[in-house]
């Protein structure tokens, strides 16, 4: 019917680093300038054989600490942070390991609508004014050699009551759901969480349809 059919994806391949990677893009805080609680995310990517996968391109996208996306489609009155774009990129090293430094995002509405402002008791998962709120989360894109196109998943934060009612998490069977909730990390000082990604097989990460 339409003649405008989306272009097919193709693998990123192994040789993209020098074209796509720029220094500092795995630190979304701009060296600590963004407001909110700093979080260090560390993880490792493995394939079906259990081997680590190097040169995986990981991109994250998230709201700021107030739950506002730095994008015109979010026209809510939640506060913008000029020091926080919400986008980060990194790649996995020879051991499959990656690291992001970011801030913990606030709750955002479940509907596409910008929604009303999060009130004083901004616990996610509550309903109010017809809006369902999502638990704090980070959207993740994964590209790699051997992946014909993008894989999409989400990271959630440990110990959040709102995880129990999050609409995206709720669509995933018990047992698999926990794999999208980061584990407390072993980094000191700053808050640190761990999010491993298993592309295939035992402990496979739940992925979402694009």
């Amino acid at each position: 019917m339409t003649k405008y059919i989306p272009t097919a994806g193709q693998t990123v391949g192994p040789f993209y680093n020098y074209a796509l990677m720029r220094d500092g893009e795995n630190d979304l805080t701009g060296g600590g300038k963004a407001s909110g609680e700093t979080v260090v995310i560390e993880g490792r990517v493995t394939e079906g054989s259990g081997a680590p996968v190097r040169d995986v391109l990981l991109e994250i996208w998230q709201a700021n600490s107030h739950g506002r996306y730095n994008h015109p489609a979010d026209d809510s009155d939640r506060g913008l942070d000029e020091n926080f774009r919400g986008f980060g990129r990194t790649l996995s090293d020879e051991d499959g390991c990656f690291r992001f430094v970011t801030i913990k995002p606030g709750a955002v509405p479940a509907e596409g609508a910008g929604g009303s402002s999060v009130g004083e008791s901004a616990a996610g998962g509550r309903t109010g004014g017809g809006n369902v709120w999502q638990a704090p989360h980070i959207a993740i894109s994964i590209f790699a050699s051997g992946l014909t196109r993008r894989l999409v998943t989400r990271l959630y934060f440990p110990g959040e009551d709102a995880n129990a009612t999050d609409p995206a998490l709720s669509g995933i069977p018990e047992g698999d759901r926990e794999r999208l909730i980061a584990k407390p990390g072993d980094g000191g000082g700053e808050k640190s969480i761990r999010f491993d990604i298993v592309l295939q097989g035992e402990g496979e990460t739940p992925f979402f349809e694009e």
Partner: peptide, 9 residues
């Protein structure tokens, strides 16, 4: 892959 609700994210 699981179905992802379309949200502001």
């Amino acid at each position: 892959q699981y179905k992802l609700p379309r949200t502001l994210t």
